[in-house]
Design a protein around this nucleic acid. Sequence first.
DNA 1: AAGGTATAATTTGATATTAAACTATATGAC
DNA 2: GTCATATAGTTTAATATCAAATTATACCTT
Lengths: 152, 152
Amino acid sequence: MNVKDSTTYRPLNTYTKLMRAAESVTARVSRCMSEDSLTVSQFGVLEALYHKGPLCQRDIAVKILKSTGNITLVIDNLEKRNLVRRERDSADRRYLTVHLTAAGTELIALVFARVEEAIVSEMASLTTAEQELLGRLCKKLGIKKGGSATKS
Amino acid sequence: MNVKDSTTYRPLNTYTKLMRAAESVTARVSRCMSEDSLTVSQFGVLEALYHKGPLCQRDIAVKILKSTGNITLVIDNLEKRNLVRRERDSADRRYLTVHLTAAGTELIALVFARVEEAIVSEMASLTTAEQELLGRLCKKLGIKKGGSATKS
DNA sequence: AAGGTATAATTTGATATTAAACTATATGAC
DNA sequence: GTCATATAGTTTAATATCAAATTATACCTT
C-alpha cells in the first residue's frame, strides 16, 4: 500500500457509503410516490407548489435542481393528469405560472403525508443526536469551498 | 406547532440535507466523467470491470444497482465506442461476459484517477474523524431494519 | 426425452434528463 | 423607434431508467 492508497482510502470509502445510503433511502421513499404513479420529479414539482404556492417554471427548475427543458416535460405530464395548470403572466408574457389544481392539491397532500411518514421511519435508524450530526456533516459537504465552484 | 411537527421536523431536515449533499457531490464528481463523454452509469460499468475483471451483465446490474434492461443499453453504447466487448459463455450460452478492451482499460484508468482525486477533494471538507463518523451514520441508514424491506 | 420452471439477456413503451438550438418576449442603449 | 442583449420556455437528439413482455438457454422431474 503506497502513500496515495492511505490518503485515498478513507475519502473513497466515505463517498461510497454516502452514495449507497442516499440511493437506498431514496429507493424506499420513492415507493410512496409510485403508489400513485408519481415520479420523484413529479412529486418534487407538486411539493414545491404545495409549500410555496404558484411558481414559474424557472423557479421550479431551480428548486428541484433540474434543467428548464426537463421541467417543461414534467409539467406537461402533470398537466395531462389535471394535477397542475399553466397560466400566462399578463405583465410579462414570457412567464408561465404553474398552479396546483384541486385534484393536484388533494393528491399531493395525501402523498406528502405518506412520504413524510416513510422518511420518519427511515431516519428512525438513527437517534435524534445522530440525525443532527449527520445533517451537520452533510451540510459541510454540500458547501464546496475553494477550488472550482459552479459559479466563479 | 403540534406533536407531529416536532416529531417530524428533525427527520425531514436530516433527509433533505443528506439528499442535497449526495446530489451536490455527485454533480461535481460526475463532471470528471463527462469530460470524456462518460455518463455516470457508463463509468460505473467500466469501473466494475476494471476492479473486478470480466463480468456478466446480471452481475454488473447488481453491482451498479440498475435493471438488466438498462445494462443492455449501457453496454451497447460502450460497445459502440469500443470500450468493452461481449463474449458469449460457451458453457452456458445464456451468459454474456463483458470485457474491457485495451482502449476501455486505458480510458477507465485515466478517468478513475481523476474521479478519485475529485472525491478526495470533496471529502476534504471534512476531517478524517468526521469522514469516519459520516460513513458510520450512512451505513446505519442504508440497512433498513424491521418493517417492509424489499423482499418480504 | 418431454414438459415445466428458472434464469440471462433483449425488447418495448413510458418517463426522465441534459445540452444545445430555437422562439417569443422584454429591456436597455443609442 | 431600432438594434443588441437577456431571459422564459420549448424543442430536439442522445442517453438513461424501469417494468413488463419476450426470447433463448439451461436444468430438473418424471
